[in-house]
């Protein structure tokens, strides 16, 4: 499986739970969504060996007065 996050790509040869993938990237579940094609994955979902998954960071900065 291939997992993209920002400019990093990690690959695993075994199926893995989303929860473990986030842990491998050192990410907080509150700060990302995990996308496979046009669906979202929950932390309990499995990512299979042939899957391609993307992690989107959702935390944004911006000026307080925006």
């Amino acid at each position: 499986m291939q997992v993209k996050f920002d400019n990093q790509v990690k690959e695993w040869q075994k199926r893995k739970r989303v929860k473990d993938i986030l842990e491998a990237f050192g990410l907080n579940r509150e700060e990302v969504i995990v996308v496979r094609d046009d669906t979202l994955l929950t932390e309990n979902d499995w990512v299979e060996v042939d899957d391609k998954v993307e992690i989107w960071r959702v935390v944004s900065g911006g000026a307080p007065g925006d």
Binding site: E30, E31, I33, V35, L40, V58, S60
Partner: peptide
Amino acid sequence: TERETAAYAF
């Protein structure tokens, strides 16, 4: 939360 608005938009 931001996670909720991002998921909603997606």
